[in-house]
Design a protein around this nucleic acid. Structure first.
Lengths: 70, 70
DNA sequence: GGCGTGGTTATGATATATCATAACTTAATT
DNA sequence: AATTAAGTTATGATATATCATAACCACGCC
């Protein structure tokens, strides 16, 4: 798997869990004080989030970070 | 849990899995072409690795990234 | 003692994650 | 048609992850 593919897959997982939690991208960003441009880029695999960013997102949507990597 | 605590915990997990795989910090860095200063900082919670860095480390020691977050 | 290996810490350079803002599309709604 | 909300994309600024290198400590070994 290429790095691009990995990031795309990770982003899809995040978006999937976010939608399952019935929160919009804007909702999540409001909670964690993040720009929606960033979260959009992460969910679309255009950006390589840090572990702390993943943690904040996971907390905001009520899942474990580990879920994003399964 | 504070951000510092989170990073420390994550780093400990990484170090733990690395040692379980019987690889030194130097070994892993050689495989993934990373500076040992970086991996040391990550394992000690002084640095906030990106998802791709975590993926490379996980691959090098033969575990899933998800393991680092359990 | 001296030497090599694993690991830590410090410093300066470069790459990139995130911030801040704006413009835009699409879809839903009134 | 106009408006509103969600999401995308672009741009420039700032913060920080990583690179590159050096110095250092602790340990086992010769």
């Amino acid at each position: 798997m290429t790095e691009k593919e990995f990031l795309k897959k990770l982003g899809k997982k995040i978006a999937q869990h976010r939608k399952a939690s019935n929160k919009t991208l804007v909702d999540v960003c409001a909670v964690i004080d993040m720009e929606k441009t960033n979260l959009s880029a992460i969910e679309n695999g255009r950006q390589n989030a840090t572990s702390l960013t993943l943690k904040k997102i996971a907390d905001a949507i009520g899942v474990e970070v580990a879920e994003f990597f399964k």
